[in-house]
């Protein structure tokens, strides 16, 4: 089954992590991607910070779509990147996600979502 892994964190908490510790975990993240290399359908992307986000929203009352500064949600958690994996089942995806190196930091989470299967083309 194919899943999207969404790597999220709390930017306000990330700031408190010393730079050298961050670099250390970044190295581990490279190792993690190498370890699970075979499962990636698409290694996805690491996203620029939420302060760079621009959102197009449906209008509240009539009119056209509205462009606003900032991410789509007011939540403290931000999606920092994503990948697409193809693994046998949810347990396999969970086993990978549990080893996501950034989980040593408070506020970090990995959301796992199955991808809608539109059938074999």
């Amino acid at each position: 089954m194919k899943y999207v892994l969404m790597y999220t964190s709390r930017p306000d908490l990330d700031e408190a992590v010393p730079a050298e510790r961050q670099a250390e975990v970044y190295q581990q993240i490279f190792g993690w991607f190498e370890k699970y290399g075979a499962t990636f359908v698409d290694s996805g992307a690491e996203l620029q910070g939420a302060h760079t986000a621009t959102t197009v929203k449906a209008p509240a009352d009539g009119g056209g779509p509205v462009v606003v500064d900032g991410p789509f949600t007011e939540a403290k958690e931000m999606i920092g990147g994503f990948s697409i994996v193809d693994v046998p089942d949810l347990d396999a995806a969970l086993a990978m996600a549990r080893e996501w190196p950034a989980l040593v930091f408070p506020g970090v989470a990995v959301e796992i979502r199955p991808i809608v299967d539109h059938g074999e083309m």
Partner: peptide, 12 residues
């Protein structure tokens, strides 16, 4: 979500 109906491996 692909939840397996299986007894998990020794680690889990």
């Amino acid at each position: 979500a692909g939840i397996p109906l299986a007894i998990p491996g020794p680690e889990e």
